[in-house]
Amino acid sequence: MPAAVLAANVGLVGAAHFVIVSVGSLAMGVLGGLLGVGGGVFLVPWLVMAAGVGAREAVGVSLLCVIATSAASSYVAGRRGDARLDVSLRLEPFLVVGALVASAMGVRVAEGPLLVGFAVFILIVAALVWVRGRFAGVERPPGLPVERHGIVNALAALSGAASGLFGVGGGVLLIPGLVLLGRMPVKEAATTSSLCLMSSAAAGAVVHLTQGGLPVDVVAIAVVGVLPGGLWGARLQQRVSARTLETTFMVLALAVAVLTALKGFA
């Protein structure tokens, strides 16, 4: 299908915005995959600030992108066989309920406070990435039971809520939680997280679709960009040092948080 035909059918945006959404989604996917935080953390601010999409719609678009990226990453994890299905299936209901409640609230929140909340959330994610870097050496053998079930379940509900409210995958909270509280190995936590996040994203997206509305044309273009971008970024991650990734993320997170907060206050 020629790009001109696609651009002509993009209701919300014209040809220029078509390029902004498609190239931006690809770039945000690469960035999210490279830094290990998923595409949503950068995709939502990009859609709001560069593509002119409303904050609530951007959250919905991002949630649909999370379904696609989670399916792709869980496909890789499933073939490798290093994901914990038992843990994933037990956490999923908590994630879904958290996403459901938060997205039902999110579609009623005004755009300004939502963006300011998103800015605060990015700063929390930056702090968690820093903490995760410090505790990278604490490892247990894979396959052991998860410790502190109650707290881990509560954290799953919180991750689902973050996903439903801000359109992120939720892995940014769930992975450090599984590692630090549940004492899971980092790799096992990451692959398990990718298995269960698609359910919470779907629950949040259903609410956004039925309550808030979603620009389907933007969804199609964004998913096409984020999906290969995320996979490419995850592959690039192997070639860059953890220290460089951490520093890059801190700088980007601070910049995005400031810009998003300014947009929210405006």
């Binding site: 035909v5 696609l6 993009v10 496909y75 499933g78 299905l85 389907v216 969804v219 199609a220």
Partner: peptide, 30 residues
């Protein structure tokens, strides 16, 4: 169990590809 997970995640990934194809066609046919 891991074979079941591999099958299930493969099915999910293929469903995503199918959804993408339909969504791209929806740009032409709403």
């Amino acid at each position: 169990s891991s074979v079941v997970v591999a099958r299930a995640t493969t099915a999910a990934a293929l469903t995503v590809l199918m959804a993408l194809a339909v969504l791209l066609l929806a740009l032409r046919w709403p």
